[in-house]
Computed example of a mutant assay.
Amino acid sequence: MTTATPVRQKSDLAVFWTVTFVTTWAFWFLAMALGGSPTSSPTAIPYLLGGFGPVFGAIVVRVRRGRRREPVPEHTVRFRLGARMLWVLPLLVLASGSVVGAALLADLLGGPAVSLTEGQKLIAALGGPAPFLIGMVIGGPLAEEPGWRGTAYPRLLATMGRVRAGLLLGAVWAVWHLPLFFISGTVQSELGLFTWSGLMFTLTVLPMALLTGYAYERAGVVAAVAVHFGVNATVAVLTVKSPVTQAFVLAVQVVVVFVLHRATTRRR
């Protein structure tokens, strides 16, 4: 099987970054202009569409590649039902467990107490567990992972190592989130951009990018979606907003990523 050259992959990345940021930020700036809650009409429509910017970018790259009959990148993980899928559940548990463990550790060491009260209110406000879970899968994991991990990540790996690729993608991913801090009613706007909570949210994107990148290498986009969902859903249920708890989440995920990277490097 032939693979795409680094030059072609850089061209694909340029197209992906452009389409992703232009579509996402255009929709989110429209949401800002409309005002109101991102869960109510008419603001909800551009708010939701903006989250799919990475998918729009991925679609454009794939259509472009298909028309040019270009080969897939060397590091692309194809979707196949099989042994690889056995990684999905353990990675989901690991992702969720990293947040739970960090929250409990913060509580034990004198930080904010772990509580499900606000999480239960959120689930009830969304109509129950099923709508909550569906919303958490679509809003973030499914809207983003086919682009970030399924399209950008394997192309970055063509010219750099896993850590550099993950950190670079994480930095881009963090910048991509910035408009959300200015849309009233989002988690990011509640945290505030120029606060410790806002800073910690931005920093936690980096180990999250490394962890989802690792998941992608193990079992493709499905695993990346599972990890993304596991972290987001657990953070929502536990209402992780305190910068102290966020700092523990950051530290725990850095350790998890370091251990996974070392284990994989030794096997190679």
Rank of each mutant, 00 (worst) to 15 (best):
V22C: 07
G66M: 10
T264L: 08
V60M: 07
L210T: 12
A165L: 04
V19R: 05
L86H: 11
M160V: 04
L48G: 13
V7I: 15
S37L: 07
S96F: 00
F248C: 14
R262W: 03
A124T: 14
T117Y: 07
L180D: 01
A44C: 06
L91F: 14
A14T: 11
V257W: 06
S189T: 03
G119C: 10
G198K: 06
E145I: 07
V222W: 00
G50Q: 01
N232D: 14
V172A: 15
V244T: 14
G50W: 02
G147F: 06
T245V: 10
G140A: 12
G35C: 07
P38M: 06
L48P: 02
A247D: 07
P73L: 00
I59S: 06
T245F: 04
I123L: 02
P42D: 14
A174Y: 02
K241V: 04
R84S: 13
L108P: 01
S189C: 08
R62N: 05
A14S: 11
G139A: 15
L86F: 13
E144G: 11
S37E: 04
E217A: 10
Q246K: 13
T39H: 05
T2D: 14
V222R: 00
P112Y: 08
H261F: 05
Q120G: 15
S197N: 09
Q9G: 13
E70G: 02
V187K: 10
G57A: 13
L48M: 12
A33I: 09
A209Y: 09
V237K: 04
L180Q: 08
T195M: 07
H177A: 12
L199I: 12
L142C: 10
V187T: 12
S98V: 11
I123N: 03
E145D: 12
P54W: 04
F258D: 11
M200L: 15
G185A: 10
P73Q: 04
I45D: 00
G97P: 01
L193K: 02
R69E: 08
M1L: 09
A130Y: 11
S115D: 05
F248P: 01
V259G: 05
T2E: 12
A125S: 15
L126D: 07
R64G: 15
L81E: 09
A174V: 12
T2V: 13
F201S: 13
A95R: 00
I183K: 01
F248A: 15
R8S: 14
G166K: 05
A219G: 00
L104E: 07
S40F: 09
Q120L: 14
V60Y: 04
L126S: 07
R162K: 12
E144H: 10
